[in-house]
């Protein structure tokens, strides 16, 4: 099996739904930051039968708030001295810009494509966000 060395300092994004790793990689902009990163795809897993993983070395300044939207099952492991120092399940972000599109055809952002609406979480249980422009509620 393909092996990637354990990291000493950094972040491991675990339990990414198989096939979604590339999207997560891109949304976090990991290719553009000069980081040492490993994207593992279709790793055998006990929890999910297959999963994707991303290992990032160093202490990068990343906006991980998007993760909860991309895949609420992701686990963020902060690694220090070769061991897991902290495990975090990212919840739904309070505010998101760019990741969701407004589905209201009467919304100004439907014709003025250069603006990305900002969405505010209004109902976490229903995963409902509200468009900052038209007020439309969108479920993610």
């Amino acid at each position: 099996m393909l092996r990637v060395d354990p990291i000493q300092e950094g972040i491991v994004l675990d339990h990414i739904r198989a096939g979604l790793g590339m999207r997560v990689f891109q949304e976090l902009g990991l290719g553009e930051k000069g980081l040492t990163v490993a994207l593992l795809m279709n790793v055998p897993s006990t929890k999910l039968s297959r999963k994707d993983m991303i290992k990032i070395t160093g202490v990068p300044d990343l906006d991980l708030t998007k993760l909860g939207l991309l895949d609420p099952g992701i686990t963020v492991n902060y690694i220090q001295g070769g061991a897991v120092a902290r495990k975090v399940k990212p919840g739904l972000p309070e505010r998101v810009a760019g990741l969701i599109r407004c589905r209201n055809p009467r919304c100004i952002t439907s014709t003025e494509g250069y603006v990305a609406p900002e969405f505010t979480l209004v109902n976490p249980a229903a995963k409902e966000y509200r468009c900052s422009f038209c007020g439309e509620r969108v479920r993610v």
């Binding site: 009467r106 100004i108 422009f133 439309e136």
Partner: peptide, 10 residues
């Protein structure tokens, strides 16, 4: 005055 919702905010 604009027919689209959110136009004034933009």
């Amino acid at each position: 005055r604009h027919p689209k919702e959110g136009a004034a905010q933009l």
